[in-house]
Amino acid sequence: MITRRVLLGSAVLATLAWPRAGDAEDEIADKRLANRLELWANYSKRTRNLLARVTTTRDSALLDAPLVTTGDLMHRGPDLLVLRDDGLAGSTTIVDGHTLEILPNQVREAGARLVPTIDGDRSPAAGWLAQRLLHLFAAGDGAELIAGCRTDVPRGGFRLDLLPPRASATRKLIRSVTVHLDPVAGAVTQILIAEAQGDRVRLQLSDHRQNVPDADLAASLADATALRAAWAAARKN
């Protein structure tokens, strides 16, 4: 039989325990985030530059079937990231500091006007995503990576969710960026971008090569540099 004293005692204990449960959840979440960032930093803190193979898959209502492309990811710290698709049918994405470009790999003089430049000021979502991608491969303790984001560390797997702030205009275009990390080395193995309009872009990374000689990196970046110059010339014409 439950006595009145037991009931009262339970109520007191529950009252005392309630806020502590909330605090404990926060602590656990903070700890999980710290663990994820520590795992990520294990790899990234040594990164001066990075080369990797990347397979990009876009699911979109505009397409009959998912668009799958393969290519290279090139990062040169602290502020250059290039994603270059293989073949002329693909494109090259360049994040150079605050300059963003998406350039088709085939330069078409007639179509030069049809390739818009990206104005970071008028496209805050593009700027936000570009900075997340850039800092994902840059050396650091994770502070810059999660700056201007909400974060979530899902249970199971070695994932980290980066979400736009609730009050930001970026949420109109991007719902979340989910980063998968290698459980041992901490390298980024997959990035899943969920767009607000329903498109999903998955970047799967493999064959990571960290801190390659500068000459090799420069050779890898040469194509992107040449492409950039070619498009600039085409736009002028």
Binding site: R58, Q106, A110
Partner: peptide, 26 residues
């Protein structure tokens, strides 16, 4: 030619992770 170029450019750019954030409305 312009239609072909526009469609080629569109498809090529769709592989970029930044494509959906550029305020383009294809």
């Amino acid at each position: 030619e312009a239609i072909a170029d526009a469609v080629e450019n569109l498809r090529a750019r769709m592989s970029s992770p930044l494509f959906g954030t550029t305020n383009e409305d294809p």
